[in-house]
Design a protein around this nucleic acid. Structure first.
Lengths: 97, 97
DNA sequence: TTATATTAGCCAAATATTGACAAGTCATAA
DNA sequence: TTATGACTTGTCAATATTTGGCTAATATAA
C-alpha cells in the first residue's frame, strides 16, 4: 500500500472529490490525481495538509510517504535489503547517542 | 560508516591519491574530495568504477551508497524507522512474488 | 445526449544537481 | 623561510530533474 492508495481510500470513504482536495492544496485536479496514483510525489507540506483535511494520522501518512521514496531509491537494486539494514542500524545509533 | 568513509579507507590503505581516483572517474580532485566527505553524492556508474579501481566489492559499495541516500530521506523524521520497516516489507513482497 | 470526475500528455517555470575553477589550508621538504 | 604537494572550501554556470498548469482524452452517470 503506497501513500497515494491510502489517501484515495480515505478520500473515497469520506465521499470527497479530487477537486476538493486539490483546491485545498492549491494545486489542480490532474496533479492531485497523479499524486494518488503515485505518478507524482507530494511535497512534505502537502502530506501534512492532506492528513489534516482527511482527519488522518499525520504519522501514518508521513511514514507511507517516506517509504515510497525509499522504495524508489532501492527498487531494482540487488542490494536493496542490505542497504535498508545499514540505514536502520545507522539511524538507531544516531537515536541512542 | 558512510560510502565516502569507506572508499577513503580503501584508497588510503592502497596508497592512492585523490587525484588518481579523480582522473579515473574523469572528475576533478575537489569533486572527489567532496564525495569522500559525503558532501556530494557519487553517481551510480561512479560507484561501480570506484569499486573496480579499488578492487573492492561492488555490492558492499552499492549498499553503502544506497544507504546514504535512504538516510538522507529519513533523517530528522520521527517516522524514520517505521518508514524503513514499511519499505522493507514491500520489497520483500515484491521479491517473493 | 449532457454533465461531472478522473486521467493522459505536453510544456514552461522553478528547483536541484553536477562539475569546473580559483583560492584556501595544512603538512612537510628544501 | 619558501616551496611543494595533498587536500578542502566556496562560488559559479551548465545541466538535469521536478513541479505545476493547461488542454484534451476517457470514463461514468443522469
Amino acid at each position: 500500500m503506497h501513500f497515494g492508495e491510502r489517501i484515495r481510500e480515505l478520500r473515497e470513504s469520506q465521499g470527497l472529490l479530487q477537486r476538493q482536495l486539490a483546491a485545498n492544496l492549491e494545486i489542480d485536479t490532474p496533479m492531485f490525481s497523479k499524486i494518488e496514483r503515485g505518478e507524482r510525489k507530494a511535497k512534505r507540506e502537502q502530506v501534512l495538509k492532506i492528513a489534516e483535511i482527511l482527519k488522518a494520522s499525520e504519522q501514518e501518512l508521513l511514514a507511507l510517504w517516506l517509504a515510497d521514496q525509499i522504495k524508489e531509491i532501492v527498487t531494482d537494486e540487488d542490494q536493496a535489503l542490505q542497504a535498508l539494514k545499514i540505514a536502520q542500524k545507522d539511524i538507531n545509533q544516531a537515536n541512542t547517542k
